[in-house]
């Protein structure tokens, strides 16, 4: 099914694309199916979010919106493909923090996070959480920090090198000025399994990845990486509150078009997105995935992207992390 639509969409874009790509036709947008590229394999939270967004945009735009996964190289393949796609509003990309992290992580990528895209809107913000295995008897973040600083248990787990959770750990080492040992896993599931089993004493995860384990008393929540506490776990403090002032890791999720996409078309998509994001049903679905739904104007989103690229380049440089 998906494949068929994708073929139809891409063939159509070859045939009709040249005719419709001008701004004068923006009032007729969209006339054929729109593709949202997800630069990751199915199964992740960004993929699930994209399917919610595609479903909502389909209803608002009155045109089929399909999701096409282009996984690989930490999202670089999909993001590069969209950076080079025809800027006609028929190819969009739903990105995660990889957009702002990868340029520093990989040394060089074949897209520019600021120049190659026309931002449409922030879609969701995703806090990460620091958790400890319940069996080690640590109750609070301060206590854990002391034990880590003493060199007793310096290990922390994450879903992999260069993930937002790995960087959250590096940022902790940086802010608390202690040395930590990163234990990378191959994905979120194995990482949480390692924390629950106690192979690693503590680790970083997305919120929904550990919610049930926290409820069941298998993991102890220590701190939230965003500046605001989470609605799901209101009793857990933020890093900022426990004395690491200014500490923030927000796993951004946002919708972008290739740069030079006509402003009118970006506007149409933005308005449609805002419209369906405002519905309670959409919010609860997105919240179910552990995201906080957020919308922003294209200009605000562009500013946030530029800021985050800057921030991660500093942290990644200081921590000496790289994939190459």
């Amino acid at each position: 099914m998906k494949f068929k639509h994708w073929i139809v969409a891409s063939t159509m874009s070859l045939v009709v694309g040249g005719l419709t790509a001008s701004a004068a036709h923006a009032q007729h947008y969209p006339q054929r199916p729109v593709t949202i590229v997800v630069p990751f394999a199915p199964g992740g939270s960004t993929d699930a979010l994209a399917r919610i967004v595609a479903e909502g945009l389909s209803n608002e735009l009155g045109q089929r919106v399909v999701v096409a996964n282009r996984p690989g190289a930490g999202g670089n393949i999909g993001m590069t493909a969209v950076a080079n796609a025809r800027p006609d509003g028929y190819t969009l990309v739903l990105v995660s923090s990889s957009l702002v992290i990868n340029p520093s992580l990989y040394g060089s990528v074949s897209y520019d996070p600021v120049e190659s895209f026309a931002p449409i809107s922030y879609v969701a913000s995703a806090p990460s959480i620091w958790v400890a295995n319940a069996g080690i008897g640590v109750e609070s973040a301060q206590e854990m920090l002391e034990r880590m600083a003493s060199g007793e248990m310096p290990y922390y787990g994450s879903p992999g090198i260069g993930t937002a959770q790995h960087l959250a750990g590096e940022l902790l080492a940086h802010y608390a000025d202690i040395s930590l040992e990163h234990v990378p896993y191959n994905g979120a599931g194995p990482a949480v399994a390692g924390m629950v089993a106690g192979d690693v004493p503590s680790g970083f995860s997305s919120l929904p990845g550990v919610q049930s384990q926290i409820d069941d008393g298998l993991l102890t929540p220590l701190a939230i990486t965003t500046l605001q506490r989470s609605e799901q776990l209101p009793e857990v403090p933020t890093f900022d509150e426990i004395g690491l002032e200014g500490y923030e890791v927000d796993h951004l999720q946002g919708l972008l078009a290739p740069s030079d996409t006509p402003e009118e078309i970006v506007g149409i998509i933005h308005d449609a997105l805002v419209e369906f994001m405002n519905s309670a049903e959409t919010s609860s679905r997105i919240a179910g995935l552990g995201f906080v739904p957020v919308v922003s104007t294209p200009r605000e989103f562009a500013e946030q992207i530029a800021e985050q690229v800057e921030k991660w380049s500093e942290i990644i440089g200081a921590a000496g992390i790289s994939v190459q």
């Binding site: 199964g43 599931g189 629950v196 049930s212 609860s284």
Partner: peptide
Amino acid sequence: VLGIPGSATMALILGALMIHGISPGSAL
């Protein structure tokens, strides 16, 4: 039982549950 998906496919099935507001583990 543990809320730990062993594969991407399992993560997707778990995601479908969570979109409906149901979390795994003893709650389920």
